[in-house]
Design a protein around this nucleic acid. Structure first.
Length: 354
DNA sequence: AACTCGGGGGG
DNA sequence: CCCCCAGAGTT
């Protein structure tokens, strides 16, 4: 490959064809950083509205550093991978306290922040500060695997270093920001996973896979094994004063710190209603009257498991608030950050009453 | 190195 | 249905 000409063709194409994305209008390293965290494993179109709302609410390092954690989680509600939000706020606090509010331009310093890994580190340092660091994401691995006909399995962690070295080899030192973004843009819009648009590709001449006619065989990616299913029972419990019981999830693990309605895993064969009533008694010390028939069923698919949630409706006579639980009015339920599956539960219950 | 961690859009 | 997305942290 003629590296020099490749760089020119790629960056020229990028400058002419790049999408007008909100974070591309920003120079503030903090805003670039937030965008890169949101974009982890998340499509551009999904991120855009979250990015706008987040920047309106938390426009500076300080505003996020000193924000209420519940407000941050509410702003992240529905975006997924919620540890990103907690790690980001933690890292921003570190920037406020240890770096005087300035996002560090030093590689070791920035990479030491929570939630900043090899990709995000390279992305922010190159885009915000112009440093010639690779930013290897799924797009870049796919593009580089085709360009250089690299047959390394991109599903394997060890392969990332191979692609980082490949990017270093072709890095456009004059404009690392445009170069890195151009590689990603190419992967997102032209060099796509299943049917690459090679006839429209600005660097077709430089592509080894196209030369060999193997662009559809690359990249090599072994697939992970299938997920498991879990059957759950969930119940919306109303007290005599009209409030409903919600509970905050544990601070570690799946959907950490998000709010939910009381629920319990249902082993095969158990009576869901009976299981829920005894769970409520044991976990919350309250006696619940639960309707005999489930009100609806919600299927929720995560990346690694599936919830089948039988949703019940019930009442309790005596309120007894415990740690991490609350009785909230129906108007206030939506001010708390719920996972999408439990948002759906609440939408269903509201629809029943309307 | 393998597993965990969300949710949604496209073929 | 399946794939996979501007990945990082934990084990």
């Amino acid at each position: 490959m003629n590296v020099n000409k490749f760089q020119q063709d790629l960056v020229t194409w990028y400058e002419a064809e790049k999408r007008d994305l909100p974070w591309r209008r920003e120079r503030d390293p903090y805003k670039i950083w937030v965008s890169e965290i949101m974009l982890q494993q998340t499509r551009v179109d999904t991120v855009i509205p979250f990015f706008h709302r987040f920047m309106e609410q938390f426009p500076t390092v300080e505003s996020l550093a000193y924000a209420d954690e519940e407000a941050v989680m509410k702003a992240w509600e529905g975006l997924g991978y919620y540890s990103r939000a907690r790690n980001l706020q933690s890292a921003v606090r570190e920037v406020a306290e240890s770096y005087g509010g300035t996002v560090p331009a030093d590689k070791d310093e920035f990479l030491s922040l929570k939630g900043v890994g090899p990709y995000t580190g390279g992305a922010v340092l190159s885009i915000a500060y112009g440093l010639p660091e690779p930013a290897v994401d799924g797009n870049v691995m796919r593009v580089m695997s085709r360009l250089l006909a690299l047959w390394d399995d991109i599903a394997k962690p060890a392969s990332r270093k191979v692609f980082e070295q490949a990017v270093r080899h072709v890095m456009y030192e004059k404009d690392p920001s445009s170069f890195n973004q151009a590689l990603m843009e190419l992967g997102a819009t032209v060099c796509t996973p299943t049917s690459p648009a090679c006839l429209l590709c600005p660097v077709q001449n430089h592509c080894e896979a196209f030369e060999q006619g193997v662009q559809r065989e690359l990249p090599v990616k072994t697939k992970k094994k299938s997920d498991k299913k879990v059957r759950m029972g969930a119940v919306v419990l109303q007290a005599p004063d009209g409030t409903v019981l919600i509970e905050k999830r544990p601070k570690k693990g799946l959907l950490a710190n998000l709010w939910q309605f009381p629920n319990v895993e249902l082993p095969v064969g158990v009576n869901p209603r009976a299981a829920l009533e005894s769970f409520i008694q044991a976990e919350f010390g309250m006696t619940a009257q639960i309707q005999s028939e489930k009100s609806t069923e919600i299927i929720h698919v995560f990346s690694h498991l599936t919830w089948e949630i039988d949703v019940y409706i019930g009442t309790i006579e005596l309120k007894s608030a415990k740690d991490r639980t609350k009785f909230v009015s129906k108007e206030d339920v939506e001010t708390y950050a719920f996972s999408v599956s439990h948002q759906k539960i609440w939408q269903h219950v509201k629809g029943m009453e309307a």
